[in-house]
C-alpha cells in the first residue's frame, strides 16, 4: 500500500506536522510506502495542514484524510490524539 503525504507550506503551523506524520508512520504496517511528490499511485493521501485554514492543495480524485491544525474533518482533538485519530480513519477505509 502506498500513502501520500501532502503538507501545506507551513507558514505558521499550530501543530507539529512532522511529529504527527512520524507518529502515524510508527503505527502503520511496515509494508506501507510513502510518497511526497506524485500522488498518482497512492491509495490514500494524508493532507497535513498546520492550521485550520487548510490551504494545502488537495490532490483530486483521491481518498483523503485531512488534518487541519488540531482538527480532522472539522472535529477538534488534542494534538497528542491526532495520530490515533488518523489511524482510526485509515483503518475504517
Amino acid at each position: 500500500m502506498k500513502i501520500g503525504i501532502k503538507y501545506c507550506g507551513g507558514c505558521n503551523p499550530v501543530i507539529n506536522r512532522k511529529r504527527l506524520v512520524k507518529q502515524v508512520m510508527q503505527q502503520l504496517p511496515d509494508d506501507v510506502s510513502y510518497e511526497y511528490f506524485d500522488f498518482n499511485d497512492c491509495d490514500v493521501v494524508l493532507v497535513v495542514n498546520g492550521c485550520s485554514i487548510a490551504c494545502a492543495e488537495v490532490p483530486s480524485g483521491k481518498d483523503i484524510i485531512m488534518v487541519a491544525g488540531p482538527t480532522i474533518d472539522g472535529w477538534e482533538y488534542p494534538e497528542d490524539k491526532l495520530a490515533d485519530k488518523v489511524i482510526e480513519k485509515w483503518s475504517a477505509r
Binding site: I5, K6, Y7, C8, G9, G10, C11, R17, K18, Y36, F37, C55, A56, E57
Partner: peptide
C-alpha cells in the same frame, strides 16, 4: 522539503 514545498 515536503514540509515547505507547497510554498517554496
Amino acid at each position: 522539503d515536503p514540509e515547505f514545498m507547497d510554498l517554496a
